[in-house]
């Protein structure tokens, strides 16, 4: 564990708490992509199967349980409790275009040809693109509530912090995980456009609005 990874994980944790806060305080999931949330739940469930047979640490265990539980809870809130506030007509990204290629990539790039390892690879590739339906929705509506942009910024910061973590681990532990690193860099790159608007507008006190 190093400072970059710890801050990254805390940022990830914060992003989920911000998302829950947004839904509870506005009593609405307007502006949140159900498809992205469903993809994250899929990512956590397929990646954390090792909960059943591999012990890393208490920290690791608790975080995994939290990520699985909170992602399923968000799905419940969106699908049942605040269902009327979710508008599927603007959440139109075709997720099959993500799931198919990620499955193919997992078959091509993995560390061992076993079911848990294939699912692990799949989850890594899927996580890297899971934000796309959300960003696509943002593009379509052209604006977002400020709290939603804080959620996305915290999520993006988590990914960005994992990059110095990998550089640090390369030097201190001689450890490199090419699958996670490649997918992680792609994932972080997807946020660049968002970060530009976030830093130049939202943090200056303006509303998140994309140029027409």
């Amino acid at each position: 564990m190093n400072i970059f990874r710890l801050l990254g994980d805390l940022s990830h944790l914060a992003s989920i708490l911000i998302l829950l806060q947004k839904i509870q305080s506005t009593r609405s999931c307007r502006g949140i992509s159900f498809k992205t949330q469903a993809l994250y739940a899929t990512v956590f469930i397929t990646r954390y199967l090792d909960l059943f047979y591999d012990w890393v640490s208490l920290y690791n265990f608790v975080m995994k349980i939290f990520f699985i539980a909170s992602s399923c809870y968000v799905l419940y809130l969106m699908k049942y409790k605040y269902r009327p506030t979710h508008d599927p007509s603007i959440d139109t990204f075709r997720v099959e275009y993500l799931l198919g290629p990620c499955a193919v990539l997992a078959l091509l790039f993995h560390y061992r040809f076993t079911l848990p390892e294939l699912l692990w690879s799949f989850s890594i590739f899927l996580e890297s693109v899971a934000i796309l339906p959300q960003l696509f929705m943002l593009q379509r509506t052209g604006e977002a509530e400020t709290i939603t942009t804080h959620y996305l910024a915290a999520l993006g910061a988590y990914r960005a912090l994992y990059i110095p973590n990998w550089i640090y681990r390369w030097f201190t532990e001689d450890m490199v995980d090419p699958i996670a690193v490649t997918a992680g860099i792609v994932q972080t790159a997807l946020y660049l456009d968002f970060f530009y608007v976030y830093f130049t507008k939202v943090l200056q006190g303006q509303k998140f609005e994309l140029p027409a």
Partner: peptide, 10 residues
Amino acid sequence: PTASPQHDEL
């Protein structure tokens, strides 16, 4: 570097 990393990251 290790060929088959431990999945100790989240």
